[in-house]
Design a binder for these strands. Structure first.
Length: 419
RNA sequence: GGAGAGAUGGCUGAGCGGUUGAAAGCACCGGUCUUGAAAACCGGCAAAGGGGCAACUCUUUCCUGGGUUCGAAUCCCAGUCUCUCCGCCA
């Protein structure tokens, strides 16, 4: 969330920086509401001061007046709250401001490639898609999933289930032992306030699965990514600077409605309602976000390097970035069946945007309170890594070679073959 | 599910109707001392918001929401969460 003070003081700058983010918000209304809000506050405080002085004086002749003032204050408060709520509603729907080095653009076509890594394997035969391979192995079962659960789910069976687990464990081990992250096994549900903190609510409620709990006021949602729950670990806190940077990693299922992507990637397990993802989150001093973004992205690409999968790194344009991000690198892995790169990780710096929403702060060197910087990135999407291994490591007879680094996690077998 | 106890500043923890925004300790920051550090001593140190170029000043906040009162951290009601004991189940 943006600080209204900053908007007020640099309104033109703010308007300019936000205009490349494809939003339709009347920014002038913000200024008006802010003005009204502050007027109400001013009037209210004047009355409160009077009331306070009466009760301090203990002068009984004024007690009646004090009572009247209370009523006036209450009325003013009501009016003020309406304006403030309206203002907050608008503010909480405005996306983060992109950093200067983010390419301007409308959508994903304006993203810029940063680097290509790895050698693309030339097959002597026509490479199959992951779902053809998986179904032939009888280890990916989409029909069974649609029978029990519906579309966009899959049963992963036998050696592929082991492989999926191996991928996840390999990633976690790399991030904890080499990259300096602390492993977390978090809840998979989050309250509405937690979802607000990272920016999933209020704007993107359509893509979240809400859980029916008790019929209380509080709402709970299945997490669409571990980012939500990991980042919110510091919400409503003032951290000691010594506890920064915090680097957290978790492997969790993620749940998404994928509303608005009907007809997209309907075949296979590219786009599912439920998938495993290893997520990296960093909480840092807010001036260290950019360095940390590079570091985090390197932690993610290290996995692909180790797995010897070809990939490229791109920087997202202003129009394609997520709501809370100020700068995002996507990492895309090569899929031979599609003959193109597909997203397997997204690493974003959110600056202080999420911290403002979460009220996550720290004491800086001068003992002043500042909002922390938050970053998140996939390291990596497990399901899509499974896909990439299936497709890039396939052989003509439909067997899958196990990448060297995963062998220890697979009982040292060399390949997965049809039974 | 039954019976209790509790929720106060970054943390621990006093206060239980009126200079209490809140004792004390720890942590943190600055200083003295020291070759440097530690220890010791001295000083500072809550957050959010409003006004002001600024020094500064005002308001709000002691889990949340209501209520009583001229006045609430303190009393009453409701809710949330935490802990202990018993039961039940993994």
């Amino acid at each position: 969330m943006h600080n209204i003070k900053d908007i007020r003081n640099n309104f033109e700058d703010f308007k300019n920086s936000i205009k490349h983010r494809n939003i339709d918000i009347n920014l002038n209304e913000i200024i008006e509401l802010d003005k009204k809000n502050r007027n109400f506050i001013h009037d209210k405080e004047k009355l409160e001061m009077e009331k306070k002085s009466i009760s301090k004086s203990k002068d009984e002749s004024l007690f009646k007046k004090s009572k009247e003032i209370s009523i006036q204050i209450e009325e003013l408060s009501k009016k003020q709250k309406i304006i403030k709520d309206k203002l907050d509603n608008i503010l909480s729907s405005i996306p983060n401001v992109p950093l200067n080095d983010v390419p301007l653009g409308k959508d994903e076509n304006d993203n810029k490639e940063v680097v290509k890594v790895g050698k693309i394997n030339k097959f002597s035969f026509k490479p199959k898609s992951h779902y053809e391979l998986g179904e032939k192995l009888k280890m990916l079962d989409f029909d069974l999933a649609s029978k029990t659960t519906g579309s966009r789910f899959v049963f992963v069976k036998d050696k592929l289930a082991t492989l999926e687990r191996a991928i996840s464990n390999f990633m976690i081990d790399t991030h904890t032992k080499i990259n300096g992250y602390t492993e977390i096994s978090p809840p998979l549900m989050a309250t509405d306030n937690t979802m607000f903190g990272t920016g999933q609510l209020p704007k993107f409620e359509n893509d979240q699965f809400e859980i029916k709990f008790d019929d209380k006021n509080e709402r709970k949602f299945l997490i669409p990514t571990a980012e939500v729950i990991l980042t919110n670990m510091v919400k409503n806190q003032i951290l000691n600077i010594n506890s920064l940077p915090m680097r957290l990693v978790a492997s969790t299922p993620c749940f998404r409605k994928e509303a608005g992507s009907y007809g997209k990637d309907t075949k296979g397990m590219i786009r599912q309602h439920q998938f495993y993802k290893v997520e990296l989150v960093s909480i840092v001093e807010n001036n260290k976000c950019l360095d940390e973004l590079e570091r985090m992205t390197n932690c993610a690409t290290k996995i692909l390097d180790d797995l010897k999968l070809p990939y490229r790194k791109i920087i997202l344009s202003t129009g394609d970035m997520g709501f809370s991000a100020e700068k995002t690198y996507d990492i895309e892995v090569w899929l031979p069946s599609e003959e193109k790169y597909r997203e397997i990780s997204s690493c974003s710096s959110c600056g202080t945007f999420q911290a403002t929403r979460m009220k996550a702060r720290y004491k800086n060197k001068d003992n002043n309170t500042e909002f922390v910087g938050t970053l998140n990135g996939s390291g990596l999407a497990v399901g899509r890594t499974l896909i990439a291994i299936l497709e890039n490591y396939q052989t003509e007879d439909g067997s899958i070679i196990i990448p060297d680094v995963l062998k220890p996690y697979m009982g040292n077998i060399d390949k997965i073959s049809i039974n």
